[in-house]
Write a protein that binds this DNA or RNA. Sequence first.
DNA 1: GCGCAACATTGATCAGGATCAAGCGGGATC
DNA 2: GATCCCGCTTGATCCTGATCAATGTTGCGC
Lengths: 250, 250
Amino acid sequence: MNTAIKDLKFNSRECGSCPIRHRAVCSRCEPDELDRLEEIKYYRTYEAGQPVLWAGDQMEFVASVVSGIATLSQTMEDGRTQMVGLLLPSDFIGRPGRDFAPFDVVAVSDLTVCCFRKKPFEELMGSTPSIGTRLLQMTLDELDSAREWMLILGRKTAREKIASLLAILARRDATLNQLTPTSGMALDLPLTREAMADYLGLTLETVSRQISALKKAGIIVLEGKRRVIIPDFAILMAETGDDFDGGPLA
Amino acid sequence: MNTAIKDLKFNSRECGSCPIRHRAVCSRCEPDELDRLEEIKYYRTYEAGQPVLWAGDQMEFVASVVSGIATLSQTMEDGRTQMVGLLLPSDFIGRPGRDFAPFDVVAVSDLTVCCFRKKPFEELMGSTPSIGTRLLQMTLDELDSAREWMLILGRKTAREKIASLLAILARRDATLNQLTPTSGMALDLPLTREAMADYLGLTLETVSRQISALKKAGIIVLEGKRRVIIPDFAILMAETGDDFDGGPLA
DNA sequence: GCGCAACATTGATCAGGATCAAGCGGGATC
DNA sequence: GATCCCGCTTGATCCTGATCAATGTTGCGC
């Protein structure tokens, strides 16, 4: 799917056409920042299943997901694995100031990333405070979602975990199109049952069973194995166990 | 224990005597940064069990733990709670750029924090890039530990969870004194069995049973309920399930 | 069309940790 | 010193999700 690259029409002056730089790096689109970023960027593509980085690898770039999906994960010696990050388009990969990858990064679908060479990126960050500020905000967001994820892993039942994951995916899907999740929306699951299990700290059999249970209960409708219709988003939310004030997402 | 405050001997020129500013805010101790931080700081104390912030509260300060222990946690409507952060001396509380606390912060022991009023702190951050950089590094560290915590919550057995927690506490305890954990070291548990359970996604009964099991196996020795001796740190590490290369911590 | 492989579903059984319950120990209060 | 309470331990039983196993479905290469 290397066509993804040529479908992107970058223009160094118009932020709207550069989702990566706009959403993931620049807080406001200062033309000179964009020009300097332009000089140090390049693209990489990976096929589904291909590793991007192993934990411990030297990282010579930071990057932003253009299209496709990658996961951050940890694997124990005996093979138990836990996903610790799910990287969707516009998400940031890499840590300025660090030399080695702390976790495995794997492409779960065909993947295109926009890379910035790390050294010059760090220099640019030093001279352009707004990039550092933006990165701090993004990191704080990631920390918040990691912490919500911890509640899911530590305290929720299998059914609540599945409902929570569907709600998270629906929300991210909707926000990518600058919408909020709506009742009746369709959701294409980007993950296999096994990847969902690794996300939620379950086995793939339990994931499958709980999805079937939610289907049987009418909370979701399946179209094939990977497409989910959510007839009533509020009812799905009620299954997540989160207290939900019926606010803007209803 | 409000005596904690008067025991602190701050000196605006000598970083060594100001653990907060040195470890948690300044990356290098520029005298003028210190002076400006000095102007906007004040102290607060809390008693054991007292809330510092509820999720959703307005935050008018950022802060650094001086002494004592606080937790970050989330509670579901039915009372299930998951700890998502453990704040020990020198840890940072608060999010520059955010107005509301995302999680509950509770003092679990008597607690003293050094606060900086948020507005001026953010202004100082804007004009002093090294503070922003330092904060980004600290946030990245927190994100990494949140992700290791996710592996513990999602994939480890109860026994591995307990061993992991003891190893984490031992390591933090040692690093506070600029050491590495050693075999034979004593560790004063700062948490009740219930708080440990909330940390690990277990019940307090399971925590108690697994601690007894580790004791019976000779992996730890208990002195009273709260003091743990670790006869051989490598043996404890072997119980965590982490792959452990026998490296610098052995 | 056939065969194969990857992904998914479903069933039967097992076990780890939760739940319910009783009792212990030590420190604070009177 | 007696009492109470909180934190903790231990036991008995239950139940959710893991494990082991078989079968179903889809898509792809030939």
